[in-house]
Amino acid sequence: MSAVVLDVRIETTINGEPRVAEDVWPGESLLYVLRERFGLYGSKNACEQGECGSCSVYLDGALVCACLVLGGQAGGRSVTTVEGVDADAVQKAFVEAGAVQCGFCTPGLVVAAHELLQRVPHPTDGEIREALAGNVCRCTGYGTIIAAVHMAAGR
C-alpha cells in the first residue's frame, strides 16, 4: 500500500464563496473536505455510504450525498451546504413541528426537503415520503418531519 500523499489542491465555490483546500489526500470525500478542510460540520457523517442522507448538499444545484462525491470532484464547481442553503421556511417548520430530536439527520433533511419544495411547492404525503426516502431518522418516526414539510409548503 502506498503512502498517504497529501498533494491535491481543490478550488471550489462553497455557499457562494470561493474556497481553496491545499494538501488534500485524493481519497478525501467531499464530506470530509467540507467538514475537516473548510470547517463546515453541518453536513453529517452518519453512514458515509450514501444510505442515510445526513450529508445531503447541492453540487451545481443537484442534490447529492457529499460522502459519495470525491473532494476533488467539487473542483471548479459550486457546493451549497446546510450552512448556506436558503431554507428558512423549512428550518422554522422543523423547529415548530417538533421534527428535531437528536438532530443528526436534520441538516440533511433540511436540504432534501428544500430541494423537494423547489420542485414541488405543495407536495402530497406520498411525494414527501418518496423524496425523503433517502434520509434516515432514528429518533422521530418521521410523522413530525412530514408535518414540517407541509408546514413549510404552506408558507
Binding site: 453541518g42 446546510v82 450552512e83 422543523f94 423547529v95 417538533g98 438532530g103 436534520t106 441538516p107 433540511v110
Partner: peptide, 11 residues
C-alpha cells in the same frame, strides 16, 4: 420548543 432545535436545523 427545543432551544437546541434552531442550531440543529442550521447545521
Amino acid at each position: 420548543r427545543r432551544p437546541d432545535a434552531p442550531p440543529k436545523v442550521r447545521g
